[in-house]
Write a protein that binds this DNA or RNA. Structure first.
Lengths: 343, 343
DNA sequence: TTCTCTACTGTGAACGCTCACAGAAGCATG
DNA sequence: CATGCTTCTGTGAGCGTTCACAGTAGAGAA
């Protein structure tokens, strides 16, 4: 009966207690804890049994103090909170990152920095070494958080290209321009020539790039550009509705419209229905994202699929590489046209 | 080829460096860091200046190792992820907790434990001392996480009463039964007598209590109970729709219905409209939650407001008290009837 | 004077862990 | 016999911080 942690002992067992219990040294217990190399089967077994008996859990503060690692990763949202909960893409991204990290047995800590105050608190927390790296999610560019973390030397991967930070910050993004090109080419291939566009916010890379892709393809096809066919939105359903109304009033002969997000496309469909236009017969509608909104729309949306599963996997891969000492890297992933009923 | 030192990750300055730079001892620097008691103004100033010059940030691992605290709190979701993002109440709760903790300068770490695997990883992480306490959010009762954390001695506050854990776990909840009573009394006061109910899931305290309140008030008012007026749902819009159809078919003379959540009430309104019943003229409808769904419904819902702001504040208060060594506590908060157009 | 009190400062121990190193044992090779 | 190699084990030295304690200086009181 050598149970060393019998009643009355409040402090949790340490590696020392386990060592005594197993009849080996701290070093051996530590080796078992970290992969079990150079440990005899007998010792291995004794230690594992002692761990079970004592209910030992490693004290990560002590471990981190010496290793300098925390074996956890932050998922930092700098968006105002509502935006996050509205956007179905965030959901997919979060799940993907969680899973990719799980493969390395690394927990993901989600942090919300909606206000200036929270931002400062979290930056202090992060720079104090509480996470090994940060997955940064934010649609709006020029985010000061990215720059602050970079300056503090915290490994960092952004989702989408951060504007104004050059190649100093890693990021993973879908090929927005190429996706837009695919969609517009698709609309052209259907014989449409009066193709409108509802853009995303033009202070984001996605908004800019998708519009650029649209313009490029039309120019290459020799279709005359017409600024009456361009309306700008902010990715919200309401802005899609407003955009479509504006386009219809300025260019009643429009026979197709490329909408820079599925949610906006839902708004566009609403406006078109109200105006009595049939989709896709009178007007073809192409979305972007392939979010759940695409299949819940009527008719179901032809759209550009962003490879969120690969995006999250790549974000994690790049972050872990950077934590391991590699240089920042940018990854651009291809998109895919998903044809449904709206074209 | 690869520049391995881009970003310049030198060894960060320690409290020792700051002490040398300021010409004082470690102890004095530490005192400045922790409130500045028993420190002369001159030393105070010298240390602050040295901190600024060196860019020192306290190493929280080292601090936590000795204090045993981590000065951070976990916000643990054991729901499958989708559920979380659907429910507007979660959103309000999260924001409230973040703010309440901010007042104590404590960062909130959100953790998702959707799968069994994630659950185990996070429990290991939490019991290893990485957070001082946990705010547990989960609608489904009988959650094994609560019991595991309690057994590990982690301070814990649940949102809503966890079934089967007695008074061993702290929780904060709205007074479901009393809220239901208010609503049914309100319907009675309008002269309605054939009052139906669509319940929540009956394996949750909320579902059970709200139904109990409904039954109590009817009994007290001498209105005869009628099981044909009781349908059960699962808080989803679809189940509200189905429930209303069932009730209409079984009790066509129903003149009011108490629905245990606003989202379900939206479904009920849909079914009533399809059946050609006018709300509130033919049938009065009362919801529960006062979620955004209540005001987006047509007609706008009369409902029972859950005091989410107070709930989050109380959760944080109870958790911090428990971290400070106090015993677990249960807090029940009053609800409020919000009258709108559906009654 | 001497004593006590207060305000401040420095020092050595922890905290629980990993890591580098030294050493031991077993076995083959010269 | 020594020598080397491999596998395994224990030990001391930290990691960066806080904490308890001892100590100093100056002011006021006896």
């Amino acid at each position: 009966m050598t149970m060393s942690n019998t009643g009355g002992r409040r402090r949790p067992p340490t590696i020392h207690d386990v060592a005594r219990e197993a009849g080996v040294s701290r070093g051996t217990v530590s080796r078992v804890l970290n992969g079990g190399h150079y440990v005899s089967p007998a010792a291995q077994e004794a230690v594992n049994s002692a761990i079970r008996r004592t209910g030992y859990v490693v004290n990560r503060h002590a471990r981190s103090l010496i290793t300098g690692r925390s074996d956890s990763v932050g998922f930092l949202l700098t968006e105002p909170q509502e935006r996050f909960f509205e956007d179905p893409n965030f959901n997919v991204l979060l799940r993907g990152c969680t899973q990719a990290l799980a493969a390395h047995d690394i927990p993901l800590l989600m942090m919300l920095a909606g206000t200036e105050d929270e931002r400062r608190r979290l930056i202090r927390y992060i720079t104090a070494g509480h996470v090994d790296g940060v997955l940064l999610v934010s649609n709006h560019s020029g985010d000061p958080v990215a720059e602050e973390l970079r300056a503090a030397g915290v490994p960092l991967v952004a989702c989408g290209k951060p504007i104004g930070l050059g190649s100093k910050v890693s990021y993973v993004a879908a090929d927005d321009r190429d996706g837009a090109r695919d969609m517009v080419r698709h609309l052209l291939s259907l014989g449409r020539r009066r193709i409108g566009v509802v853009t995303g916010p033009l202070d984001t890379p996605g908004g800019v790039e998708r519009l650029a892709g649209y313009r490029e393809v039309l120019a290459e096809a020799g279709v005359e550009g017409d600024e009456r066919l361009v309306a700008s939105g902010d990715y919200s359903r309401a802005s899609g509705e407003a955009g479509a109304e504006l386009l219809l009033s300025r260019a009643p002969d429009m026979d197709a419209v490329f909408v820079a997000s599925d949610l906006m496309a839902q708004g566009v469909l609403l406006a078109l229905e109200r105006a009595g236009r049939r989709v896709p017969d009178d007007i073809a509608v192409g979305g972007f994202d392939d979010s759940p909104a695409a299949v819940s729309a009527r008719p179901e949306l032809t759209t550009i699929r962003q490879p969120w599963d690969r995006i999250s996997a790549e974000m994690v891969r790049v972050l872990l590489a950077q934590i391991g000492g590699e240089d920042p890297a940018a990854v651009i992933l291809p998109t895919e046209l998903v044809r449904r009923d709206s074209t």
